[in-house]
Design a protein around this nucleic acid. Structure first.
Lengths: 206, 206
DNA sequence: CGCGTTACATATCAATCGTTATGTTATGAT
DNA sequence: ATCATAACATAACGATTGATATGTAACGCG
């Protein structure tokens, strides 16, 4: 996919993936606005012109970090929703995946899509809206999986798909907040198990 | 309690409660760090020296705003936990209260204790820790109410109080995130109702 | 080799950040 | 009236913010 096409001119003195990973971790830890360029400079091991030449500006760098996060850190979510298991098991995979992903010892706690900018200054509203989009798309994906479950006779027709989807997302967001406070994967796993009690057992009846 | 003792010197040209309310609303909307003094100055209708004379500095102003928020906006929580109803009903009151409190049309969405600083710069870690303290105390209060329920034979002894308390807090935090995205009180109320399904019905058995 | 291109390092930009010095004005007490 | 006190308004502080201008070094290509 990514062909490292040989270009004229002096080659980069750094690996773009490596420094983007460092930037992502820093944004994940401190959020978009609270992460200063000086912090990024230190963490990435680059000078400001290097950062700006490679990533345009801070906002673009952040959006690249979001893409990377989406691909490398929360791929478990799509995998869970696409797994060929029952609807209930798919949601269980999703929640336990979140419990794991949000509490990796070598990574910041919680989810970048929440920590990145829950509140923001007026200047950063566009960035906050982008994060909101990521979060809402995940709810849409959950709702789609639930609807499929109903179509397959895998999930009770009595249940309101939008409400259940919203609930599941809400639990994940709550887990993210707690993960930031140092909750362990075990604790979040128990939380996920409890949250699943609100979801009815398999019942093909309508 | 608050005696407006007559002091010597020129009197204040503003009402401290009024301007603190304005500051609280601004912090609630944009969070601690993303709220600049220029924004506060405009919203409070004061000059910087007026703000600093009355509230010491930005951090102290924020802490005063937190106290005010705690007293005026989330008193529903303690009221719910102290209400003379069943444990299950108390939690129901708590969650529906959150649904209402987080979606007031004339107030920012969500909870200040989360929006204030979920992520923070290294310089603002103390503030972030204060918010963490507010959140964790609310979990402690929930856990205490659940333990009382078990002692009264009102809640199954099978249940893990810490886990259930963590779960309830997690739902509230998830509701807060969604409220920031424009979820209505009706939607959050449905979410609360669904979340309660994870809590066992009244059963005095152990 | 020399040319075009691109990234490099050093230094610095204007704007905004939270905060404060300075002098004036309005009060209560003597 | 005068004095101590405290808040007022104007102006500006040093530090940090995100972002660049400038000149140099390293590559592919002819």
């Amino acid at each position: 996919m990514e062909i490292p096409e040989k270009r004229a001119g002096r080659p980069r003195a750094f690996n773009a993936d490596t420094v983007l990973e460092a930037a992502m971790l820093l944004f994940w830890e401190h959020g978009y606005e609270a992460t200063s360029l000086a912090m990024l400079r230190d963490a990435m091991g680059l000078t400001p012109p290097q950062i700006y030449n490679a990533f345009t500006d801070k906002e673009t760098l952040f959006r690249k970090a979001l893409e990377r996060y989406h691909q490398t850190e929360v791929s478990f979510a799509l995998a869970a929703l696409n797994a060929e298991v029952s609807t209930r098991e798919a949601i269980a995979l999703l929640l336990t995946g979140a419990a794991t992903s949000y509490t990796r010892p070598d990574k910041p706690g919680g989810c970048l899509f929440i920590s990145g900018a829950l509140a923001a200054s007026p200047q950063a509203q566009q960035v906050a809206d982008t994060l909101k989009g990521y979060r809402q798309r995940s709810e849409t994906a959950i709702a789609a999986r639930l609807a499929k479950g109903q179509a397959d006779g895998d999930l009770s027709m009595q249940i309101s798909v939008p409400t259940l989807a919203r609930y599941i997302r809400s639990v994940m967001h709550g887990m993210s907040v707690q993960a930031r406070e140092g909750a362990t994967s075990l604790e979040l796993g128990q939380l996920a198990e409890l949250a699943l009690l609100a979801m009815p057992e398999n019942s093909s009846g309508g």
